[in-house]
């Protein structure tokens, strides 16, 4: 070993900015959002273990349509005597599963395609991004509607099971979210691919696939995460939209969207039946949007046209 000049300088102090970023923390709103979403996840996971009334078969012989804080029904019951609390909790599980499945699917496919388009670039990249643009030109709800109809045609006598229907809805919405996620991933992958460390990795003989996954992808993840959180929020809303067309999961299984949709023809009769899930939707969507923004700010994710 040759003589090497030892390092003389000390390791750098964190810059002022870095320090501020650490101190700033997440803020109360973000913690509230995390708390709310945590509750939702808890409800979704434990829905079948909680001591709830039967969400499907109501007590039709009891007084139906009673309002909040009626004996045994915190959120009242609906016209078929079903406990609103039980339905909204089971609906949480359905709605969140659909949201998570579809965005998981969309992120996986959209992220991969976007990464390839952004890193490989050239004609392939151009062709892929042209494809995203075409897909983005369709109104998402319309596309989802069409996809659900195509994926789950009602020709057979036997209706699809709850799980199958959920997968179909998640797949349809996931397909719709692909171009959105692909586009933002591509934009970020493109900018990160031109960074010197990518070339440095290349000059060390790393293969393109490896560079994509090890060098580019980890840098793109924050942007994807931010968009995925916003995407989850959108899916919750799109599920509600599908439900209005009777294309979410099949009755009598509840989802937030189904519960609201079941009352759209008469909002005044038993308002708690749609207000409760609407509040759940509202708070969850707001929380997700907020967290999406927090992630974006934290990681200084570059804005890309969505």
């Amino acid at each position: 070993m040759s003589e090497v000049a030892p390092m003389t300088e000390a390791s750098p102090e964190p810059t002022q900015e870095e320090e501020e970023a650490t101190k700033r923390g997440l803020g109360i709103a973000a913690w509230l959002a995390i708390g709310w979403l945590g509750c939702m996840v808890f409800l979704a996971v434990s829905a079948s273990f909680l001591p709830l009334d039967d969400p499907i078969n109501g007590s039709i012989r009891e007084t139906p349509g009673v309002s909040y804080f009626t004996e045994g029904h915190i959120f009242g019951n609906d016209l078929l005597g079903r406990d609103t609390l039980a339905r909204v909790v089971v609906g949480t599980s359905t709605s969140l599963s659909i949201a998570a499945l579809s965005i998981g699917f969309g992120t996986l496919i959209g992220g991969f395609v976007g990464l390839v388009a952004g890193y490989v670039g050239g004609r392939i990249g151009t062709a892929l991004s042209a494809m995203f643009d075409i897909l983005l030109a369709f109104p998402p709800l319309l596309l989802a509607l069409t996809l659900v109809s195509v994926l789950s045609p009602v020709t057979e006598t036997d209706p699809p099971s709850r799980i199958k229907r959920m997968l179909v809805v998640a797949l349809a919405v996931g397909l719709v979210s692909i171009p959105i996620l692909a586009r933002i991933t591509r934009a970020n992958a493109l900018s990160w691919s031109q960074r010197e460390f990518v070339m440095a990795a290349k000059s060390q003989g790393a293969k393109p696939f490896r560079i994509m996954l090890r060098e580019v992808l980890p840098n793109v993840v924050p942007a994807m995460l931010s968009v995925a959180l916003l995407g989850l929020a959108s899916v919750i809303i799109v599920e509600g939209g599908l439900a209005l067309f009777g294309l979410s999961i099949n009755p009598p299984d509840p989802s937030w969207g189904n519960m609201v949709a079941s009352q759209v023809d008469d909002l005044g009769e038993t308002p708690h039946v749609w207000i409760v899930p609407s509040v759940f939707i509202f708070l969850s969507v707001m929380s997700l949007n907020l967290l999406g923004d927090v992630v974006r700010d934290k990681f200084a994710v570059r804005e890309a046209a969505i």
Partner: peptide, 18 residues
């Protein structure tokens, strides 16, 4: 690359994966 020839880049700020 890497075994026969390799390269030291100009700006170590950007040449390392953050």
């Amino acid at each position: 690359w890497g075994t026969q020839m390799s390269m030291v880049f100009q700006d170590p700020m950007t040449a390392l994966n953050p």
